[in-house]
Every structure is written in structure tokens, then in C-alpha cells.
Design a binder for these strands. Structure first.
Lengths: 266, 266
DNA sequence: TGCTAAATCTCGAAC
DNA sequence: GTTCGAGGTTTAGCA
């Protein structure tokens, strides 16, 4: 006799070595509730869409999330061997003694069919997760990256000075472009707003007065806040996208290169 | 009283609402055996390496494979929020009442630390999976792709004919390059071997005799079988990599473009 | 909606 | 080992 799935404190439902028949309803309920489902068992996969693929029998972990995304994981490899992104239409059916789970989407039109010939266990649960994910790179790290390779902002851009003291404060990056024009860069780790633009404007004015030449002002940030583009254009300043991630990557590269050059030295 | 983890027929070990203390040994054993581990629980994540990231408390699924890869999955999204590729060094420790799982690798130097404050369940199992994964595109589809856009093989390559009847059989693709030289292409869906090369040689010779001009012979395949490069060079023929996937992608693009052009038509 | 560029891209092959 | 290119790339930012 089989026991019914038991609801845990966390709302976890577990089926160990379940029968195919009972699994159909179990999965349909889980999909309807948009719960997360983990299936471990022996399955085949067929994918058809942008390309076609087939994968014979083997024991795998299948992860089906409430958003309709599907992943089939083999025992090794970071990436799923087969998958389907979110917003799939999921359907479960019994095919003889096997269980078929189809994940279909249009645009692009593609289907992943996972057919289980045996099941080791199935878990279904609703996960609570409201946390915010944040990738960090400091403004100082971004400045270091720009100083070490100004071309990440603009081709041919060269460094004159950084953290340069001028009347209202410090210029993050001070350089010269391919046409020989001075460039003042205001760096922001987060989307740049009016404050950053006005700050830059002051620096540009000061440098313009000091040198008596026309000076370019560039806001370098991951993006502009809404409305900032308008102010920027009004003041004759520019925006250049600079992603914190790219800066971090470049710094990492420089770091490893330094180390390798050190070891290569005689 | 807690019951001991029970070994299933499949070698599955399950812990439901386990205590942190018992989990440490459980995970260390699993990692040593290089079994696959699934953990569901409330955790925080900190990543540091190429970039830095932090993720606050939330219920997630963590998948740790025998190859040392780690994935932290939130309730939605196809991709893991945090991850670490294969060949990581895994370590488990108790930090107060929390469980910390660190995945570290060098080159690039980066660490993912996942700290569980509570556990819903843990599963550990060895998966048997020896199946081969294959992506399908027929040779005919590859030929269609090449015919519809010869530049995927070589810049400026133009089509003269395909499936062209010559003495020993059919030339897959017959064209002309930017220098006006005739090009005979032999297509293979799988790594090309001696047979494909000799076939191509016959076509090239026939076309050369017919036209009285020098003719280029190109093997287009995902790769060359070992030793084939040598024969190719000896016979004065060329190899151009052509992936079935890229052909499939191109065909799909053409298809969608056709459809959109159809709908756009007046 | 479609494109273009970046990704903690990953992964594999060639050099 | 390192570099280079492809991917069912995915994803985010913009026009």
C-alpha cells in the first residue's frame, strides 16, 4: 500500500519511488499551484525547435519552476543538457508505463519532451524568496579600471590625470580624445541622475575657463535615470555606458596579467 | 527523535527538516563520494571573484554535482542566481546555528559561499547516466542553409548550383569565390573522414578537367576526423568548419523572416 | 518589437 | 596551458 503525500511545515510534498499513475495528478496539481518541482529518475529527452536533439535513457534531475521553466540536469556539468525558459505550457501524460512531461512555447516555437521510465523521487514545494540580488563594484574600482584602460569608455581615449583637484571638488577621470580635445569624465556606479550631470557641468566649465579650450563632459555610468538624457543634451554633455561588471572583469584580467608577468620576469 | 537517513534501492539518501549538526557529516560524505546533492532551504549567498554579489535570505534550491559544480536556484528564472562551474573545492562548516557551504576555485579565483539558516530537505544520490546527447540537423538542411547564405562558409562566396550532377555523383554545393575561382563543397553533418575527402577530390578533378581551370575543393563539416587534415593537405583541399547548429539557426531565421515578410506584404 | 552588445557567460577545440 | 569562437547561447539596454 502506498501512503499519501504528506504536507510538511514548509509545504513540501515528497513522493519516494512513486507509481506513474499517482504522479500525473500530483504534477498537474503542482503545476496549477505554480510550485517548484524536483524530479529525480530515469528519463529520455527530445527537443525540437531552434534545433533538434535527443538524449537516451539515463538518471537525471529535472527542475520545473513555477514560472514554467524546465531544466534537465545530468550528473555532471554546470549547464542543463536540455532546458526550456520561463512561460512554457506544461503538460503531463501517461504513455504506456512511462510519464511524459512536455514543455512547449511559441516564439520561438519549441518543445521539450521528457519521458520518465522510472522515478526515484519527486518533491514539490512553494518557495518564499523576496530577497534582492546585488552585484557589487565600487566606484573606485570603476575608476581604476578606466585609468588602467581608458579605451573601455572610448576608442583612443588617453589618461592625463585622475582624482584631479579642481575648484568644486575632484574630477574622476581627466583625459584627451583622438582629436586632442580634453575630456572630463564623471563616474557613477549606479544609474546617473541630475546631480551627477550638474556636478560634471561644473567641472567642465572650470576646465574650460582654465584652459580656454572646448572641453567634453562625459557621464560614465551603467545607465541614465529617466529624464537625465534631456538635461544632458541641454548642457551639451555626453553619456557613455560603463558597466560595473565590465570594470571588475578588466581589473581581474589586469591583476592576473600582472601576476603572470611577475612570474615570467627573469 | 530523528531517524537515520535510509538508503533506497536507488542509493538515494533523504533528510527531511534535518538538524544542522547531522548535515555537516552527511554533506562531507556526499562530496567525498562525488554524489549529486539537492538542498532546499533558506539561505544567503555571497559571491566574490570576477565580480562580487550578495543575496539575502530566501528559500532556494541548491544543486551540487559530483564534478564540483554548484547552482543556487530561486523560485523563478531559467538561470541560477549564483553558481560555480565544475572542478570547485567544496567545504562545509557550521557557523553558529547556520550551515555554510563554500565552493572555491582558482583560475579565475572565485568563491561562492551559501549559508543556510534553515533546511527543508536534503537529498543525495549517485546518478547513472551514460547516454549520448546528439543535436540533429540533416545534411540536406545544412545544404539548404549554405545555399540560402553561402557567406556562412566564406565571405563573398556565391552560389552557381547545388546538387549538381557530375560523373561520379552529385556536388553538394558549386560556387565561385571573390577571386572568381570555382569552389566545390562537400558537406558532412558529422566529422569528415577520408571517404568524404576522396569523394571531394574526384569532384574537384572532374570540374578541373571540364573547365580547364584551377578549382578549390572545400570540405564543410563540424570537424575533421583525426588524420584527415593530413590527407586534405596532401590533396590540396581545404577544410571549413560548418556547425549543424549554425545551419539550423540560419534556417530558422530565414523561416521567421519569410513569415514576417509575408505578414508585412500589402 | 527587433537589434546590438555584454556575460561571474560556459564549453570545447586549436595552437 | 592559453586563446579563440560558438551557443537551442541568455539577457539587458535602446531605438
Amino acid at each position: 500500500m502506498r501512503e499519501e503525500p504528506v504536507a510538511r511545515t514548509s509545504g513540501l510534498l515528497l513522493l519516494e519511488n512513486p507509481k506513474m499513475e499517482e504522479v500525473v495528478g500530483f504534477l498537474q496539481d503542482s503545476f496549477r499551484r505554480k510550485d517548484l518541482v524536483i524530479i529525480v529518475g530515469d528519463c529520455e529527452c527530445k527537443y525540437s525547435g531552434r534545433a533538434s536533439s535527443s538524449l537516451g535513457h539515463g538518471e537525471r534531475v529535472v527542475l520545473i519552476k513555477g514560472d514554467g521553466s524546465v531544466q534537465v540536469h545530468r550528473p555532471t556539468g554546470y549547464e542543463p543538457v536540455n532546458w526550456q525558459p520561463a512561460r512554457c505550457i506544461l503538460s503531463v501524460s501517461l504513455e504506456g508505463s512511462s510519464l511524459s512531461i512536455k514543455a512547449h512555447r511559441s516564439r520561438p516555437r519549441e518543445t521539450l519532451d521528457t519521458v520518465f521510465s522510472s522515478l526515484i523521487f519527486i518533491a514539490s514545494t512553494r518557495l518564499m524568496d523576496r530577497a534582492e540580488f546585488s552585484l557589487y563594484v565600487s566606484e573606485e574600482q570603476m575608476r581604476d579600471a578606466l585609468v588602467s584602460d581608458p579605451s573601455i569608455l572610448e576608442d583612443g581615449l588617453r589618461l592625463i590625470d585622475f582624482e584631479r583637484r579642481v575648484e568644486p571638488g575632484f574630477i574622476d577621470f581627466y583625459g584627451k580624445d583622438t582629436q586632442g580635445r580634453f575630456v572630463v569624465v564623471e563616474l557613477k556606479r549606479t544609474p546617473a541622475g541630475k546631480d551627477a550631470i550638474l556636478q560634471l557641468k561644473r567641472y567642465v566649465d572650470v576646465v574650460g575657463e582654465t584652459t580656454g579650450l572646448s572641453v567634453r563632459g562625459v557621464v560614465a555610468a551603467p545607465s541614465l535615470r529617466s529624464g537625465a538624457q534631456r538635461i544632458l543634451a541641454t548642457l551639451g554633455l555626453e553619456f557613455k555606458r560603463l558597466s560595473p561588471r565590465r570594470c571588475a572583469k578588466l581589473l581581474q584580467k589586469r591583476e592576473t596579467r600582472k601576476i603572470s608577468e611577475f612570474f615570467r620576469a627573469p
